[in-house]
């Protein structure tokens, strides 16, 4: 039983928790947060690829054999930065949207647009 409790499986659960939030919440702020949770889950998954508990951080020339795989780490720094910037853009948009329509509900905005 306990062998299924790994960080990778936890990240998958987290991903689908985020997806649940996207699917079943109509509040835009919750959508933004849920997509972020999914993003973080994917990032968590990627850093744990090839990772073992006894590995050292990939810094400096020593212990080359025991180092963690540096590639996912380098990539995930990029992914984190992208995630932050995209979230910033979406929150900025949301503020404008909220000021204009006075609601943060996807459904209500559609009603106001079609009316």
């Amino acid at each position: 039983m306990m062998e299924y409790v790994t960080i990778q499986n936890a990240s998958l659960v987290l991903f689908f928790v985020g997806l649940y939030g996207v699917l079943f919440h109509r509040n835009i702020i919750r959508t933004i947060i849920s997509v972020n949770v999914m993003d973080v889950a994917a990032i968590l998954f990627l850093i744990t690829v090839n990772a073992r508990p006894d590995q050292l951080p990939p810094v400096g020339p020593e212990h080359a054999a025991r180092m963690a795989d540096p590639l996912p780490q380098a990539l995930m720094i990029t992914a984190i930065v992208i995630g932050i910037s995209v979230t910033a853009v979406s929150i900025t948009l949301f503020i404008g949207l909220f000021r204009k329509y006075g609601t943060s509900d996807w459904q209500k905005i559609i009603h106001r647009l079609t009316r």
Binding site: F15, G18, V22, I28, T31, I32, V35, M38, D39, A41, A42, I43, F45, L46, V49, L75, A79, V86, V89, S90, L93, F94, G96, L97, K100, Y101, I109, I110, L113
Partner: peptide, 24 residues
Amino acid sequence: LYNGMLYLMFSILAMAFFLLGIGF
């Protein structure tokens, strides 16, 4: 704003799938 928001959120939702796919 609504069109932009919809497009943006839907795209980054899709890209979350893509990122996990990259992981696998």
